[in-house]
Amino acid sequence: MALEVKNLSISFPHLRVINNFTYQFNQNGLYLFVATNGSGKTSIFRSILGLIHSKNNGITIDDKPMAQMRRSVFYYESSNWFDINMSGMDYLKLIKTQWKSNVKINAVIHFWKMENYVNKSIRKYSLGMKQKLLIALYLISDADYLIMDEINNGLDEDSRKKLLKKLNELSQHKCIIISSHYKDEVYPYADKILTIKDHEVINDNH
């Protein structure tokens, strides 16, 4: 079981972003994307999920197109994507149902200490609260492939440590693909490091 990316190239008008990226993400392990700002990490994630157009020879999970394997992947790019009129609980319930997950909502809420605000509308959340909700969605989905873009942004140090510990635990049986500005914090837990240089994704032996 693997997520395979074949010859992925991303470009925007007058701007080449990623050139011919081919890679196989195994069913477990933590993959860390390291690159400078604007080098194309988010674009890779978006094109893997089919959110933006890209040239490729196939993005598959178990040799099946990504569009057919939505339930195996979870990606929610940013807390800015939330509809601020909704509550955290609304999102948790939706994700649990859609991904047919067995993870208990209350356990996740308790783990991230969200009891006090999870039923309130998201417009009342601080940045850290929204980020915790975002992480909770990943945990609730229980998907095999978790793709996380700068997920530890906006978290305090303790929360970041707690998150990394959890990710390390999850990476034993799930594939976690993550990009982070806190490179040094994630580095010890990463199984593979991928760096982007001159539009090429390079497999950096760890």
Partner: peptide
């Protein structure tokens, strides 16, 4: 229209 962010349809991500 909430489904569209930066012209991307994020509702695509739902396994549906």
């Amino acid at each position: 229209s909430n489904n569209y962010i930066e012209r991307m349809n994020i509702s695509k991500l739902l396994p549906m």
